[in-house]
Amino acid sequence: MEFKPMNETLANRTARALVDMSLAATPGDYLGAENDLLEKFGISRPTLRQAAKMVERDRLISVRRGTKGGFFAERPDAKDAIQSLTRFLRLRGTNLGNVMQVTRPVFEEAAAAAAKLRTAADIEQLKEFVAAIDRREDSRELIASEVQLAQLIARISGNPVIELVIEIGYSFGLSERDIGLYGDPERRHRSREMQRSLLNAIIIGDADIARLMMQRRSDQFDEWLKSGGASQEIRT
Rank of each mutant, 00 (worst) to 15 (best):
R45D: 11
R92Q: 14
E34I: 15
R177P: 02
R187G: 05
I61T: 01
A120C: 09
A111D: 02
M214T: 03
S191E: 09
R65V: 13
R49W: 11
E223Q: 14
D208G: 12
Q232I: 15
S145H: 12
R59D: 06
A25V: 07
K40M: 11
Q232P: 05
D20R: 15
G66V: 05
T9I: 07
A112W: 00
V161D: 09
D80V: 13
E146A: 11
L181N: 00
G70C: 06
S175N: 12
P46W: 07
I43Q: 02
R90E: 13
E233D: 13
G97K: 08
P46H: 08
L18I: 10
T119P: 00
A17R: 10
L37Y: 01
I156T: 03
D77R: 09
F88P: 04
I203Q: 00
N98L: 06
K79G: 12
L48M: 07
A78E: 06
I202A: 01
A144V: 12
K68D: 14
S175E: 14
L10P: 03
K226I: 14
Q151N: 14
D222C: 05
A25M: 07
G97V: 11
D77A: 04
I166L: 05
D29S: 13
Y182P: 00
V130E: 11
L199G: 00
E233H: 13
G93T: 03
L23Q: 15
S231Y: 08
N98A: 09
G32E: 05
V147S: 12
M6A: 15
G180W: 01
N98R: 06
N200T: 11
A207E: 09
Q220N: 13
E128S: 14
G205M: 03
I61V: 09
M214N: 05
F88S: 14
Y182W: 12
S22H: 04
S44A: 14
S175F: 04
L142T: 01
G70H: 02
M54D: 07
A17S: 13
P27R: 06
E124K: 10
E193T: 08
E167T: 15
I82R: 00
A73R: 07
S22E: 05
L89G: 02
I203M: 02
P27K: 04
N35M: 12
L198C: 01
R192D: 04
